[in-house]
């Protein structure tokens, strides 16, 4: 059940250091939104505030609002664990659980949940998630081998399968292809295209072509200088951002004239 996200006046701090300031941004449901921008401008930080992963870093703080279908996920009575169940995440480096088999990796989120699923239900979810992650055919006869025995690209798709097995509404991806070869990258890009039918997807990428290929909307972040907070420069339809940016800085960045 894809949901829309609204970010309002978001500031992010690490201890004393203000990493991001004043971000206001809407992410429509059932679409792919790409975050682009130079290194250190706070793309990952903003992404991690969307499922409250931000606060596992000691000393990290957030001000402002993040609304999920209108509900503030930073409101008082909100349980961050429930937020993360609704907003899944895929990381830059594939990180399957090393002690678990492929099957158990996919089932991990469900097995570690309070409600118990029957074995057949679990089988069903694993099958569906692996199919949705375009991995089923490659692992169908080694489901009980360790997850770490897969190639990097397969591991990343395994992580995507693991993330969607808990049926989130939103999927966050932080440079999911940066550790992968071009063929695996293509496989994941295809996958993103198919996943957006059901999920709201936000993806951070350094690859401009990738952003142009997979996303419907693009948000460009930058920072004025080292030690300065990052900020959102502009966001809009991907075609508009790449074809006709409103801001000089966006134009410079996408045409490779940055810094």
């Amino acid at each position: 059940m894809a949901r829309r996200i609204e970010i309002k006046d978001l500031d992010i701090h690490y201890g004393r250091f203000c990493a991001v300031r004043g971000v206001t941004l809407s992410v429509p449901a059932r679409s792919v939104t790409a975050f682009i921008g130079p290194s250190g401008c706070g793309k990952s930080s903003v992404l991690r505030t969307l499922n409250r992963m931000h606060e596992v870093v000691p000393g990290a703080r957030v001000e402002g609002n993040v609304l999920l279908d209108g509900e503030d996920i930073y409101a008082r009575d909100i349980d961050p664990v429930a937020v993360r169940r609704t907003v899944g995440m895929v990381f830059q480096r594939p990180n399957p659980f090393p002690t678990m088999s492929i099957y158990d990796n996919v089932a991990a989120g469900l097995k570690l949940d309070k409600r118990r699923l029957k074995r057949s239900e679990l089988d069903d979810v694993v099958l569906r998630s692996l199919r949705a992650a375009n991995l089923w055919d490659e692992v169908r006869d080694r489901l009980h081998k360790p997850g770490a025995s897969l190639s990097g690209g397969q591991q990343q798709r395994l992580c995507i399968a693991r993330a969607i097995a808990v049926e989130p509404d939103v999927l966050l991806m932080d440079e999911p292809c940066s550790a992968l070869d071009p063929i695996s990258t293509l496989a994941i890009e295809d996958l993103i295209g198919s996943l957006k039918e059901r999920y709201t997807i936000v993806i951070v990428t350094h690859n401009m072509q990738q952003a142009a290929r997979v996303s419907d909307r693009t948000a460009f972040f930058t920072l004025a200088g080292v030690g300065q907070p990052g900020e959102l420069v502009e966001d809009g339809d991907t075609q508009q951002i790449f074809g006709n940016p409103r801001d000089r800085r966006t134009e410079d960045y996408i045409s490779g004239r940055f810094g």
Binding site: V83, R84, N95, T99, G109, L112
Partner: peptide
């Protein structure tokens, strides 16, 4: 690695279960 803890949190697994099971 912290990445494993984060992977678990991101699945909506509470911290104590992350410690015990991951």
């Amino acid at each position: 690695p912290d990445e494993l803890r984060e992977a678990s949190y991101a699945l909506g697994v509470p911290k104590w279960k992350t410690v015990v099971k991951v």
